[in-house]
């Protein structure tokens, strides 16, 4: 085999191989989008229950990804889950923002949702979010539903007082 032809083929091979890597990083992965707003600040939120939230899960506001979950750990004094959030620096949120853990779809992955408040003071690096709403646990929901049903069938029915009583008769 001619040396020039070998050189040419190897050149093509290496070029398309590196091209494939680039394709994976840019088109399949998020190298491009992360590079723009990788820098950011960290805030903390405490939840009674973090559910199935995982590190690196998205943080969304109005459905737009504004950051990632940095880490999750347990406060061994208050027994709350401390979730550190990495928020991209171009996004600023008021101090009275509410953090909630939602599930995308019925069985999808969980993410942190930030609902902006009306305060004029913004959250800074290492700030703490005061108001949070824990993850909804399917088991709790189901048992609540069953419980209220059972109570409905029994004639004297003082309401359980729970906010979430889906399926309860008016």
């Amino acid at each position: 085999m001619n040396r020039k032809i070998i050189d040419l083929w190897v050149g093509i091979f290496v070029a398309i191989g590196l091209g494939a890597l680039l394709f994976l990083a840019l088109k399949v992965g998020n190298l491009l989008s992360i590079n723009e707003d990788r820098r950011g600040y960290q805030i903390e939120a405490r939840f009674d229950n973090v559910g199935n939230l995982k590190p690196r899960a998205p943080v969304k506001s109005a459905g737009v990804v504004v950051g990632r979950v940095e880490s999750i750990r347990l406060d061994d004094k208050t027994f709350e889950g401390i979730v550190r959030l990495h928020i991209y620096s171009q996004y600023l949120f008021p101090r009275d923002t509410i953090a909630a853990i939602f599930t995308s779809g019925l069985l999808g992955e969980q993410f942190v949702s930030l609902e902006a408040g009306g305060d004029t003071v913004m959250l800074k690096d290492e700030s703490k979010i005061a108001k949070t709403q824990s993850a909804i646990q399917l088991e709790k929901l189901v048992s609540q539903f069953m419980f209220s049903k059972a109570q409905d069938s029994a004639p004297p029915a003082p309401s359980a007082g729970g906010a979430a009583t889906p399926g309860a008769k008016p």
Binding site: F13, G17, L18, A20, L21, V28
Partner: peptide, 8 residues
């Protein structure tokens, strides 16, 4: 390089 091409 082959693995990257495979994935792509």
């Amino acid at each position: 390089l082959l693995a990257a091409l495979f994935s792509m």
